[in-house]
Design a protein around this nucleic acid. Sequence first.
DNA 1: CATGTTAAG
DNA 2: CTTAGCATG
Lengths: 316, 316
Amino acid sequence: MSTKTKQKKIGDYVKTTENSMKRGREKDGDDSESKKPKSGQVDLSSINFGCDKKNSKDKPWTMKIVSWNVAGMRAWLKKDVIGYLKKEDPDIFCLQEIKCTEKQMPEEAKLSGYKIYINPGEKAGYSGVALFSKTKPIRVRMGKEIKELDDNEGRVIEAEYEQFFLVSTYIPNAGQGLKTLPKRMKWDEKFRNYLKELDEKKPVILTGDLNVAHQEIDIANPKTNTKSAGFTKEERDNMTLLLEQGFVDTFRTLYPEKTGAYTYWTYFSNARARNVGWRLDYFLLSERFMENVCDCVIRSEILGSDHCPIVFYINI
Amino acid sequence: MSTKTKQKKIGDYVKTTENSMKRGREKDGDDSESKKPKSGQVDLSSINFGCDKKNSKDKPWTMKIVSWNVAGMRAWLKKDVIGYLKKEDPDIFCLQEIKCTEKQMPEEAKLSGYKIYINPGEKAGYSGVALFSKTKPIRVRMGKEIKELDDNEGRVIEAEYEQFFLVSTYIPNAGQGLKTLPKRMKWDEKFRNYLKELDEKKPVILTGDLNVAHQEIDIANPKTNTKSAGFTKEERDNMTLLLEQGFVDTFRTLYPEKTGAYTYWTYFSNARARNVGWRLDYFLLSERFMENVCDCVIRSEILGSDHCPIVFYINI
DNA sequence: CATGTTAAG
DNA sequence: CTTAGCATG
């Protein structure tokens, strides 16, 4: 099976404007406050939190979704991430690997203005996902409520909105020495089937840490990592199957040639400073929904985890 | 059984001089270096590392021994303790709860000029004692070499010198909810018998963390701790038995009325700053050897562990 | 290398 | 509260 998948090109979906600085919403003008860079976090004033691009129907973005694997929410909160989130101001944000229960979650994390949904999983301090949404979804399912998945590890939250399903996930890691690759393969299959059914009802926005770098362009060292968790042929092929089933890797479709675009860097050996990374975090979209997409951005400057946030702009 | 024991008084053993500033050795004059207080450690320049007192025969100290429960040697080493030890410059120093093997011990800890003996115990990261001696002892026994004790937890090092045995120990903690009090009771008995036999051969200097505050004066909150590990009647009675067997609590004998003299403060609730402590670390001496003692000092200013070092000055 | 356990103190 | 171990990433 080939790991290459034909993805459509930019022009098929997105109308690239002349960096017009026009935004779907006028939210980012007030950089009068907090000029001072805070502890650990980068200076946020240089970041454009809006989106200059329009969708294929020349419409600006109306909704922003953020996904971030936080690698332990309690430690993450000590790194000035709330200031970033407030500036980013997404309509929905999805966190993976929170490694805590609702009870253990510090109050400062419970940002006002959001409905909060938490799927902590059973094992203490392991995995866990959360979803924050400004508007209340029609329905939210998570964990064992999604019977097809039987998720007891805090890996999935599904939120149904008027026009789409949003699925946030943290896909199982294949483990050191690939010792949990079989578990991963089983998960991938049932998750693929679950998404297929969901997609038949409404378009799906799938986001989160898919724990796979799909192509060689998605990893700094493809040659030396073919036996590493997250870049085995098995995992890459499973992602290909997902795409062939009617999902689109939005970032790669918008930026097919973009190298050095990663969302994860190991803490070892100063990998992030050297940009020795992996693209493991995605926005995958039901193909028929792609015409609405404005942009997909990797916020590689934002610190707080070994993953960085990714941002998705869409016109709904 | 009473927990009170008749200990002789100061004048019986030690001749208190008029703070003569004469020292047994002239070692502490050079405070020209390192005036700057280093990270985490207190300013050492105000400490008198010598001893102004003389023994009962009007002789100054000729030997200094230090004991310190370091509560994890590797973390302890990060707190500028080597600078203190070099200034203190003991002839022998005994460390308890090193929580590492010889292999794991950082090189910086292996101070030149000392013979080093390590009894790490079997369980990784648990317990473990070490002894550093400028002069090579006649014989050193530790762990299972001391058959009477059958110590596989790194609790004892015995060093034989010409005129005495030095025993450094870390007595088992009775545990939360006193769940290891039975183990402790058994240890106390066999340890007492071991010391009795040793004492028949030569005078014994016993030092270390005895994990008991003997009397009410030895603990900040005697009333609320009668069921706490380290202040149960059982543990206190066992210490009394040891004293009745011919050992002397040197500090308490020298300073029978001294309140607020502690060697341990829990890390909880800022106990050390409030001096809510326990005296758990001792120099116990064979009664017939007491005439040689010059002083016993608690270095409560010295940071690096939840215990502080204690210092023993003797004329040998 | 970092996070959150756990056992122990 | 702190140490050091461990499992996991």
